[in-house]
Nucleic acid binder design. Structure first.
Length: 576
RNA sequence: CGGGGAGUAGCGCAGUCUGGGAGCGCACCUGCCUUGGGAGCAGGGGGUCGCAAGUUCGAAUCUUGUCUCCCCGACCA
């Protein structure tokens, strides 16, 4: 590719609305431009990287036995009504009507469409297992799009859907996809973790997220430092502790705690460790059902665990007014003792073995001390409700401690079971001629997000440092002063042709610009290898080869430089 | 959705409080000069100041409305 005939509008200054490094660099490198909130143009350079990644995904999906197809991005409401998600998906689902007033949506995901296709076409157990995938543009009307391609509203996604005769077969399909995902992200040279995850609005029985580790990640994940357990904190289990306290039970006593609402302030005011306090949080499913969650004062409620424990579809913190109505007590002084009937009391496992606690007295400016679960108040259920924190004991092995990371979710695999196939009546006849519901799985990869995540992990003060598999070009050839030094231009062009002939993606910087501009641009856009052709080196028959990542620079005879580039690129692209 | 902030040239911004000339840096165009890390000099083009209404002799500036964008907020009891 001739730089002078290509289109790479680089920016010297960082646009003010770009927060994270990948967003800033993708704008500055001329890879993307914003069209509207969360909606981007993919400029030629950005598209090249995206295509590189897509092809890696394609290769691995095909290798794993998945079959590529393409579904429409506009979907009829009927299918969503049939699955029930027309109601549940909420405002993220962009809905609209056609000229005949029929309702449609922009597809945020394609379980309904693929299941509809499969139920029409698949009749026999002989036709399975099947796994269809597509690489396609999705639309989710996010509350707050941000960070460029990391959380856009319109985005490119690879989604795959597996169909199997039973649960065991579906598990196999799931495992194949899981392994394919590991290969995909390893091939890109990403530092990632596969973690257990909540299934969210997609539903299903179990799932893993593939998380690229980065401080800018929107998810918190934990992993064990001695075994393989790793999970999103939304999902991460707490190791149950059974402490039997021998402490003598104090008597229950009410104490004034004027204006001390936050549990930390209460503990400080009463001069007790915060670990001996219990806080009460009221949540609702938004449909008039309220639950009071009891947690140790220094622990954080995990809303998803509470939601799942209650069997709710939605969850949110109750408002102050709702709390007063449901519990009869003011916010800041809530407690289970003497609370209104009809409120479910559900406690975190940490309350097991706690005694002589401080807890809200359901009265303005009052807390109890010496409160004891079982004696002073009843708990209907004790479940795991809190967030794991760094240093917690591993729930799976004896010696491990949990470590915390921030991660960018680039892939997610789900076991769906029969959730969609039942709703949409996707069945087949088994060997006995009996009608049976199909078992499904679904598997997503954020294409643009992965490229962005790769930039989060690979950059320096001069710009992007693309790993070779994702680089828009493997190598650049920079001709110094081509306007004047025609011998340089001719020689550089020859190198460019030779490299292209070897199958290397080359960007030939033939622009009549000052060297500084060319070096800065080449660094910014992150081309992994650079050959500089200048008159000085050429006098000795040599050119300079520089490695963007390591900074290594060497003067080499022309053919040797070409050979080195070929070898480095080939080595980076093989994966077994 | 709540709170905060911002819309002035392609990008980054000043000017708005205190109404009267639309500006600065980068980018862009022309010429000279320069050529191994975003040079220099000279000249030049480009903006209905987000949109609408109002106040005023006069509005980027004041008032009202509206649209868009950005940031913060889901552990606070």
């Amino acid at each position: 590719m001739l730089y002078s005939r290509y289109f790479i509008p680089t920016l010297k200054e960082t646009p003010s609305d770009a927060e994270v490094i990948s967003h800033q660099l993708m704008l500055r490198a001329g890879m993307i431009r914003k069209l509207s909130a969360g909606i981007y143009n993919y400029l030629p350079l950005g598209l090249r990287s995206i295509r590189k990644f897509e092809n890696i995904v394609r290769e691995e999906m095909n290798k794993a036995g998945a079959i590529e197809m393409l579904m429409p991005s506009v979907q009829p409401a009927e299918l969503w009504q049939e699955s029930g998600r027309w109601q549940f998906y909420g405002k993220e689902l962009l809905r609209f009507k056609d000229r005949k007033d029929n309702e449609f949506c922009m597809g945020p995901t394609h379980e309904e469409v693929i299941t509809d296709m499969v139920r029409r076409e698949i009749k026999s157990y002989r036709q399975m297992p099947l796994n269809f995938y597509q690489i396609q543009t999705k639309f989710r009307d996010e509350i707050r799009p941000r960070f460029g391609l990391m959380r856009g509203r319109e985005f490119i996604m690879k989604d795959a859907y597996s169909f199997d005769v039973d649960s065991a077969a579906a598990d196999l399909s799931y495992e194949k996809m899981y392994n394919a995902y590991v290969r995909i992200f390893e091939r890109c040279g990403l530092n990632f973790r596969a973690v257990e995850a909540d299934t969210g609005s997609i539903g299903g029985s179990s799932s893993h997220e593939f998380m690229v580790l980065a401080d800018s990640g929107e998810d918190a994940i934990v992993s064990c430092d001695s075994c393989r357990y790793a999970a999103n904190v939304e999902k991460a289990e707490v190791r149950p502790v059974s402490v039997t306290s021998n402490a003598e039970l104090m008597s229950l006593e009410k104490k004034a705690t004027p204006n001390k609402k936050a549990i930390i302030d209460v503990a400080a005011f009463l001069k007790v460790p915060v670990e001996t306090t219990i806080k009460a949080l009221v949540c609702t499913n938004g449909e008039g059902v309220f639950a009071m969650a009891l947690l140790r004062g220094d622990h954080d409620l995990n809303e998803i665990k509470l939601k799942n424990a209650m069997g709710w579809e939605e969850i949110r913190m109750a408002t102050d007014d709702e709390i007063l109505a449901a519990s009869g007590a003011p916010v800041g002084f809530l407690g289970p003792i003497g609370v209104k009937d009809g409120l479910v009391i559900i406690a975190d496992v940490a309350l097991n073995g706690m005694s002589n606690c401080v807890i809200g007295a359901n009265e303005t400016d009052m807390h109890y001390v010496g409160a004891n679960p079982g004696r002073d108040f009843m708990i209907e259920r004790i479940v795991d409700l809190r967030n794991v924190v760094a240093g917690d004991a591993c729930p799976r092995c004896e010696s491990g401690k949990m470590e915390m990371w921030r991660g960018i979710e680039v892939g997610h695999v789900f076991k769906l079971g029969t959730k969609y196939s039942e709703k949409l009546n996707a069945t087949y006849l088994d060997a006995d001629g009996k009608e049976t519901v199909i078992f499904m799985g679904c598997y997503g990869i954020g294409i643009g997000r992965t490229v962005a995540a790769s930039i989060e992990q690979n950059h320096d003060e001069n710009g992007i440092i693309f790993p070779i598999p994702l680089a828009p070009f493997h190598c650049s050839v920079v001709a110094l002063n081509p306007g004047k030094e025609t011998g340089v231009l001719a020689q550089a062009e020859e190198i460019y042709f030779k490299l292209e002939k070897l199958g290397i993606d080359v960007l030939f910087d033939d622009r009549d610009e000052r060297p500084g501009i060319k070096f800065k641009d080449n660094d910014l856009i992150g081309i992994p290898l650079r050959i500089v052709v200048g008159s000085k080196g050429l006098a000795e028959g040599k050119v300079e080869l520089k490695n963007r990542k390591t900074g290594d620079m060497q003067l080499l005879p022309i053919d040797e430089a070409i050979e080195q580039v070929r070898r480095i690129v080939d080595n980076a692209l093989v994966y077994e």
